[in-house]
């Protein structure tokens, strides 16, 4: 082996090592930046089973996505009944009480007027107002409460970083476990989703800039050097 070949060999090794270091840095960076592990399933039944398995594995910050509602999913995910009904009832009742007070105060206190010999305040003509105000306040509570409980309006969600996820409006059935789950650990969660039959498993993360990657690689390299010293 002549000197020429030798130096080329060294050069290639160096390159390869640098590339390897870069890959390693990228992997670490992605694991750090992962917001969710996304897995795809073939059909609604599998998604239903996956939701049950995820729940019994102890995860509670996860979500399933499908192009249409799946019967039994609420039970499979162990979702509690929405508190919206109680909210609507409470506010609706307040609207009802407010209407009684308003009818009495306006008709009998603030501006008493005689209309065809009727009393200033009486229940029969007030009932429609009581009913309407109850309905109005209930409807507003239902709409606003629904938005609030769904954390809407929301213009972005990390799940949109995944390109594959666009399939969900067509024929994709997805399950995502989020990084803010207490039990979340990138590698374990990924292995778990593989074990329950998830396909095309993806670590959903924000796009990583080239410069960021360079910095991370260098930081890693200097750390290695320090360790070597």
């Amino acid at each position: 082996m002549d000197a020429m070949t030798q130096s080329r060999q060294n050069f290639d090794d160096m390159n390869r090592n640098a590339e390897k270091a870069k890959q390693e840095a990228l992997r670490i960076l992605i694991e750090e930046e992962t917001d969710a592990v996304l897995a795809e399933f073939d059909n609604p039944a599998e998604l239903l089973r996956a939701a049950e398995a995820t729940r019994s594995a102890g995860y509670d910050r996860y979500e399933v996505y499908s192009p249409f509602p799946i019967h039994g999913m609420d039970d499979a995910m162990g979702l509690r009944q929405s508190p919206l009904g109680f909210l609507v009832f409470g506010v609706g009742f307040c609207g009802f009480l407010f209407a009684i007070w308003m009818q009495w105060w306006m008709g009998a206190v603030d501006y008493p007027l005689v209309f065809s010999g009727k009393p200033f305040f009486s229940l029969p003509p007030s009932v429609p107002i009581m009913f309407e105000l109850m309905v109005l306040s209930s409807a507003f509570t239902a709409i606003i409460g629904m938005f609030y409980l769904n954390k809407m309006p929301r213009f972005f969600h990390p799940i949109f970083y995944s390109d594959r996820f666009a399939k969900v409006t067509d024929d994709g059935f997805f399950l995502a476990i989020f990084a803010w789950d207490k039990k979340f650990n990138v590698r374990e969660t990924k292995a778990f989703l593989e074990s329950i039959g998830g396909k095309n498993i993806e670590l959903v993360h924000r796009p990583i800039e080239e410069q960021e990657l360079e910095e991370a690689t260098q930081t890693a390299a200097s750390k290695t050097m320090e360790v070597a010293k």
Partner: peptide
Amino acid sequence: GFSQFMLIWYGN
């Protein structure tokens, strides 16, 4: 039932 009652009450 109430609609029937209220109109009659009002018409008197």
